[in-house]
């Protein structure tokens, strides 16, 4: 009697699972989900994707060793120029609040010229640096963030991490000086 009940219950579960799968497939093929970047995810999808992303990055970046000389001025200069050439369009700079990319991309790229609290990150310094390195190197799927590791070695990526860590403290003038690749023409008199 009990065995029959368990059997029928497992059959019910199996049928429910198959129906759920079929329903999911039907939804995938229906084209009903709005894929435009100008329509935000519903809160459940947003939570699921963000949780998936954050935990995946945290796990992958956990054993990355941060260089001791991340505070060096040479790293700032090297990383600043690269940031200005490759990142500023999406991640902005001191004095610039928005761009076409920051407005149009979804999920919106974080404004790295703001400090952690202002763009919603609450990590320790070490975790943040590991995370930044991993994200720059490997990118983020379906977010617009490319994997820069294919054309940039680790040292160059660490230079960018070094610069990003100082970026929220920079004024627009300091940013201009640190990120310029050309020789100084005006100098001091």
């Amino acid at each position: 009697m009990v065995a029959k009940k368990i059997l029928s219950c497992s059959k019910c579960l199996l049928i429910a699972a198959v129906l759920t799968m079929l329903g999911g497939l039907a939804f995938l093929y229906s084209g009903l989900y709005p894929m435009g970047a100008d329509v935000p995810h519903n809160s459940l999808t947003f939570w699921a994707l963000e949780t998936l992303r954050e935990n995946s990055v945290a796990r992958a970046a956990d054993d990355i060793e941060v260089p001791q000389d991340l505070q060096s001025s040479n790293r700032l200069l090297a990383g600043g120029a690269d940031y200005n050439d490759m990142c500023v369009g999406c991640h902005l700079k001191p004095g610039k609040k928005q761009s076409d990319f920051s407005l149009g991309l979804y999920p919106a790229p974080p404004n790295l010229s703001l400090n952690d609290d202002e763009h919603g990150s609450h990590e320790g310094e070490l975790s943040a640096q590991q995370r930044q390195f991993w994200i720059i190197k490997h990118g983020i799927k379906a977010s617009g963030m490319p994997a820069w590791g294919s054309g940039h070695d680790d040292e160059r990526i660490w230079n960018m991490v070094a610069f990003i860590n100082k970026l929220p403290d920079l004024s627009p003038d300091q940013y201009q000086i640190l990120t310029a690749r050309g020789e100084n023409s005006t100098g001091h008199h």
């Binding site: 120029a81 690269d82 050439d85 490759m86 820069w148 054309g151 940039h152 003038d173 201009q176 000086i177 640190l178 310029a180 690749r181 050309g182 020789e183 100084n184 023409s185 005006t186 100098g187 001091h188």
Partner: peptide
């Protein structure tokens, strides 16, 4: 593709007068 030399073509000069 991402050689820093490529960026030198339109490289801006540091505005040191701002200091």
């Amino acid at each position: 593709a991402h050689d820093p030399k490529e960026h030198m073509q339109d490289a801006k000069k540091p505005d040191c007068a701002a200091m």
